[in-house]
């Protein structure tokens, strides 16, 4: 049960949604964009947030876009299961199908997972390693930003801005590697989730679960692609370079997470090198 009242509006267009937000803000009502609502309802129940107006964006066509070409675009209001069932991008499907459970994925949306408050937000990882971009709507219109610039610990959305959709470029060579580890059972938050794409020498890596936020670091990738080091030394050097970022909690210690990441990087390097040899 949610222990307070709010108003609820269902805009048909992006313009209506943004206008509803701005007008509520001017009236001193605390507005919130809403789609799947799985996290918002939980936070409302615990009174960690108290919105005065819920703006439900799931009827807005632009937020339900699903286009699959060389560049694929997914609306922020699409549920994870809708994307899993439709996508031809294996690393995206693989990442999304490990988030929460099947019933939750019928409601949890792409935008909701990425903008949420939890540290994991794993849905962003494939977009980080496949040249992702986002479309954002505000009172000034719609603009596009690269994920690499626009996601820094979190989406850098300003007050009232609406995440409309996310795009990524499919890897035709299918060079990808994915690993997720949990403490107990697969329906749990990760202690490490790792997505790798690209050919040896140009491998991209995005991580979640071991840190307070999802991360892709280009400086770290220089070490990851340093062929003068063998796999084991490279993995150790990558982990050393991120040493201060690892979390310790009841799920796993920072040291255990470092150990897991070392093993995962080694496996990913070996797998992607072997895959590339087979393609050639």
């Amino acid at each position: 049960m949610i222990p307070f009242k709010f108003s609820y509006v269902v805009p048909d267009t992006i313009e209506e949604a943004v206008q509803a937000w701005n007008s509520a803000e001017k009236r001193g009502v605390n507005p919130l964009y809403y789609s799947g609502g799985t996290e918002i309802i939980t936070l409302c129940r615990d009174q960690k947030i108290e919105p005065g107006l819920i703006i439900d964006i799931k009827k807005i066509p632009d937020c339900n876009t699903l286009v699959q070409n060389e560049t694929s675009t997914f609306g922020s209001a699409l549920t994870l299961n809708k994307i899993i069932e439709s996508t031809n991008i294996p690393i995206l499907a693989r990442t999304l199908e490990r988030i929460a459970d099947h019933t939750i994925r019928n409601k949890l949306t792409l935008g909701g997972n990425i903008i949420g408050r939890l540290p994991y937000r794993e849905a962003v990882l494939p977009f980080m390693v496949l040249y992702g971009s986002v479309q954002i709507a505000s009172a000034n219109g719609i603009r596009t930003e690269n994920i690499s610039d626009f996601f820094n610990k979190r989406m850098l959305l300003k007050k009232g801005e609406l995440l409309v959709n996310l795009s990524l470029k499919n890897d035709k060579n299918d060079n990808w590697f994915y690993k997720r580890k949990e403490k107990s059972g697969i329906i749990d938050y990760p202690i490490l989730t790792a997505c790798f794409t690209g050919k040896p020498g140009n491998i991209k890596m995005a991580l979640s679960g071991s840190f307070s936020y999802p991360i892709r670091d280009k400086e770290v990738e220089i070490i990851l692609n340093n062929k003068s080091l063998d796999h084991r030394k490279r993995a150790a050097a990558v982990v050393d370079s991120m040493n201060n970022l690892f979390r310790s909690d009841f799920r796993a210690s920072a040291d255990y997470r470092k150990h897991l990441l070392k093993l995962t990087i080694k496996d990913a390097l070996i797998y992607l090198e072997k895959k590339n040899e087979n393609i050639q």
Partner: peptide
Amino acid sequence: CEHGDCGVCTVQINGKAVKSCLSLAIE
């Protein structure tokens, strides 16, 4: 649990299983 963990409140919305504790009636 009313946190979307246990599944005892599962209903179908347009044939798809959804946890009703994580859904607003109005939507």
